[in-house]
Amino acid sequence: MSFFSDPDTVARYAENPPKLVPGFADLQRMTLQLINERVGEDANLLVLGAGGGLEMKVFAEARPGWRLLGVDPLAEMLALATRTLGPLASRADLREGTIDAAPPGPFDAATCLLTLHFIPAEDRARTLGELWKRLKPGAPLVVAHHSFPQEPGEKDIWLSRYAAFATASGIPRDKAEAAAEAIGTRLPVLPPEQDEALLRAAGFVGVSLFYAALTFRGWVAYRA
């Protein structure tokens, strides 16, 4: 996560997700739609991995009655979230830390976008369990992150596809390939079946894949 402590990286953060994550804007819109299925006009949402504030801004603009609690381990990214939200920042409570920094709730919904792939499997299981504890019964959790086959040959194919997409989106080829290598060697990425198993083991039900885009997968699940 030290990568996001670099001032230049933070300054350019809003530019990169659309170039690196296929259908980035649609992912946010789908997340909003899935939450809308279960949540009314007046609701409390927990956003884990809130740094940058991009999805929080989408939620705040679409639902004036929603109150947002955002958690992120990096102060630099939370400062960026405040700038991204602008006048909407008054509706967001931003806290530095991991899931443990979030109050017990209960919350009406939670999201964790482009975050879980930074967390090792053993800590990911605990993080999902803590999210479950903070949700009301029936509340949705929406997650999306890197999740693709990890067998050596197949893993390399997917990483090359990630690099090719980034290059076609305007990222210099050497940087795109370096990013793919970093994902393959430094991130604790899990295969999709293991990600789903962790959600179920944490107590979530109705686990459904709603987003699949090259190396990324997204699921919606519900607190029992």
Rank of each mutant, 00 (worst) to 15 (best):
G52Y: 10
R12F: 09
E15D: 15
R67L: 10
L68P: 07
L20M: 13
C112V: 15
E193G: 06
A50S: 06
R67C: 02
V189G: 00
D42E: 13
A81S: 12
E76S: 11
L187T: 04
R83Q: 13
V39D: 03
D72E: 05
E154Y: 12
F165T: 02
E181K: 15
L74P: 02
I35Q: 00
F210L: 12
P17K: 05
E122C: 07
G49M: 02
I183P: 02
P103M: 08
R223L: 14
E196V: 15
S90I: 14
F204I: 14
G40E: 00
T111I: 15
A164F: 05
S90D: 13
H145T: 14
L54N: 04
A75I: 00
P137A: 07
E37H: 11
V58L: 12
I183E: 04
A197K: 13
T84W: 01
G138V: 09
Q33S: 14
T82E: 05
H145Q: 15
F210M: 13
A50H: 00
G206L: 11
V142A: 07
P191I: 02
I119Y: 10
P73K: 01
R91P: 10
D8K: 14
A168V: 01
G105E: 05
K133M: 09
E37D: 09
T98C: 13
E193H: 13
S147Q: 08
L34R: 03
E41A: 15
T98M: 14
F148N: 10
T98L: 14
K155E: 10
A62V: 10
K136D: 03
A176P: 09
